[in-house]
Design a binder for these strands. Sequence first.
DNA 1: GTTAGCACTCTTAACAGTCGAGTGCTAATC
DNA 2: GATTAGCACTCGACTGTTAAGAGTGCTAAC
Lengths: 344, 344
Amino acid sequence: MELDARKLKILQAIIDDYILTAAPVGSRTISKRSDINLSSATIRNEMSDLEELGFLDQPHTSAGRIPSEKAYRLYVNSIMRHAHLTNDEISHIKSHFTKRLDEVEAVMKQTAYALSDVTRYTSMVLAPGFSSARLKHLQLVPVAEGKALAVIVTDAGLFKDTLIRIPDNIGPAELEQLSRVLTMRLKNRRLDEAGKLMTTDLMGDFREHRIFLNAITDVLTKSIKPSERSLELSGATNILNYPEYSDMDKAKGFFTALESRDLLYRMLANAVKMEFTITIGSENEDVNMRDCSVVTVSYKLGDEPLGSLGVIGPTRMNYAKTLAILNYFGKSISEIITDLIEED
Amino acid sequence: MELDARKLKILQAIIDDYILTAAPVGSRTISKRSDINLSSATIRNEMSDLEELGFLDQPHTSAGRIPSEKAYRLYVNSIMRHAHLTNDEISHIKSHFTKRLDEVEAVMKQTAYALSDVTRYTSMVLAPGFSSARLKHLQLVPVAEGKALAVIVTDAGLFKDTLIRIPDNIGPAELEQLSRVLTMRLKNRRLDEAGKLMTTDLMGDFREHRIFLNAITDVLTKSIKPSERSLELSGATNILNYPEYSDMDKAKGFFTALESRDLLYRMLANAVKMEFTITIGSENEDVNMRDCSVVTVSYKLGDEPLGSLGVIGPTRMNYAKTLAILNYFGKSISEIITDLIEED
DNA sequence: GTTAGCACTCTTAACAGTCGAGTGCTAATC
DNA sequence: GATTAGCACTCGACTGTTAAGAGTGCTAAC
C-alpha cells in the first residue's frame, strides 16, 4: 500500500484538526472540509488504510482517529511548511522586550517568560556557556578575612563570580597584585586551557599559594560544566490548559520530569550544536515525557553557538508555528546578547 | 454560650483528625477516641454548639464537621503546643545539608529544596538583604570596551555584582584607581547612605564622571530593594498531593498565585522583622490563596535579621509541626550563613 | 473508484434506586 | 441537669439502566 498524495492530504487534515481540537477526528469532519471533496465513506476507507500504515490510532472502535507519533514525525519531516508570524504576533513578542535588560540573567528570565507566554507551552532557556570563551580578566576582590571573590570575565563579555577561601596572610594589596599577574598570564586562553595552565606553569611560580591557586583552578574548570550554566524554566503550569493533562496523575508526571533539571540541561546542551531539534513523544528518554514533544533552537554570537532555548508541550503541538516562534526568539536573543556585550 | 474546656478539647480533636484525613469529622469518630469518654450524641450536641459559635462548618446536612478559619486561628493562638522534632526528622533534615555549600545562593536553593521535601508543602526562602548591611569593598572590574562590573561586598560578606556602562576613555588602571578611592570613601557606610554620599559629596570631586557615578549609585540603591533579593521557591507541585487541590481549577489558581512573585516578596519581606507569622486562609490578601495558609520564620546573623523563609500549604496544615520544622531550618540557615561569612 | 445506506459499537449523559454515614430530636436514664 | 440510646431523616456516593449520538465497517449500487 502506498502513501499517495491524497492520503497525505487527508493525514495532514486530520493532524491539523487534532492539533486544534484534541478530539479524535471523524470521517465526516474531514469530508466536510472545502479542500477535500470526498464523501465520508471514502475518507473512512482511506483512514482505515492510514491506520494500517501506522499513521493513525483509534482509541476505541466507534471513535474517530488520532495521529500516531509516526504521523507527527512524517509531518515535521515532510509535510510541514515553514510558518510565518503575523505582525500581531511579532508585536506581541516585541512587547515583552521593551524594558532594557542589562544582564544576561535578566535576558534569560525575560526570554523564558515571554516564550511561554507567547507559545502557551512550557519554555526553557539555556544561558550562554563558557566552553569556548576566552578569559579576558580575572579579578580577586577581598570579601572578608580569609575570603575573596574570584570574578572571571570572558571575551564574550560573560562573567561569573565565585567565593573562594584565601590564606589569612593575603591582604587586599596582594590580591590586587595577583589579579594583575594572573590576568596577564591567562589572558586570551580558553577557560579549560587556563585551568590547565594554572596547575602546570603557575603552580611552580607561586608554590606558597598552592591551595589558593587550586581554588581558582576549580572555579575556571567548573565554569565550563553545563550544569553550572543557568537554566531558566517558565510556564510549567501552561500544560494544565491542555485537556490531555486534565488527568492529575499525568500532570504530576509532567512536573516530575521538569524537576529533573539534569535531563533538561542535557537536552538543551545537545541542542546548542543544532540549528533546531524536534523530539516527539517516546523519542524522549524520560518516561514521564512520553506524551510530550520538545522543540529547540540554538542562538549564536556571530558564528559561535552560545546557548539554546526550547519549549515542551503536548505531542499534539503546533510544530510549524512553534518552530517559527522559536526561530524568532533565537534571532532576538542573539541580537540582545550581541548588543549587551558589544554595544559601543 | 461559653467555650469551656470540654468544647476546646473536642474542637482540638476535630482539628487533629481533619488535618490528618481531610474528610469531614463525624461525632462517632470523636466519641471513639480514648481521651474523650462521651457518647456520639453528646459530641453531636457539643458540635452543634461549636458550629453556632463559628468554629465548625458543615459542608451539608448529613456530613461531618470541618474546622472553620476561626478554629484554626484559635488553634494556633491558644491550643497549639510547641511541637518537637523526632531524631529521625532531624537527621532527615541534616541529610540535606551534607554537601558543603560555598555560596549564599546555593544555600538558599538547597534550603528551599530541603524545606519542601521535609514539609511536603511549597517552600520559599528570601535571601539575605542588603538593607542594613555596610559597604566593605567596591570593585570595578573591566569587562569590555565601555563596560565594567561593579562588585559590591558588604560587611556581612554578602556580595552582588552588576554590569554598568562606563565612558570609553576609562581604562583598567583608572577603574582600579576609582575602586580604591570609592572604597575608601564609602567604606562602612550603609548602602543607602553610600548611595546618597555618591550624589552629594563625591559627585563634586569627579564631575567629569557624572554619568558613570550615577550608574554606581543606582547599583547601590537598587541592592536594597527587596525585589532585587533572590527568592527561591520549591515544591510547588507538592500541593497536588492534597485532596483539596485535586480540582484542577483550584490547582491552577494556586499556581497563578505563586507566579505573582511580588506578592511572595512582600509576604517574606514583612516576615523578616517577625520571629514567625501564620496567615490563615482569607487572611491572605490574594484571592487565589484563600484556601492556603502561610507560615514563616525569620533568620538572623547575630541579632540582625537577615531574611526569612516559609511554607505555603492547605489551611488544613499541621501548624505545630510546620512551625517546629521552620524554626529548625531558621536556626540552621543562621548557622550556615554565619559559617559562610565568618569562618576563619 | 466512489458513495449511499445500514447495522453495529462504544461513549456519554441522564435518571432512578440503594446504601451508608451522619445529623437532630426526643425520651429515658444516671 | 447532664448524658445517652433510639430513631427518623438527609444527602452524597455509587450502581445499574436506558437513550442519544458519534463514528465505524461493510455491502451493494452507481
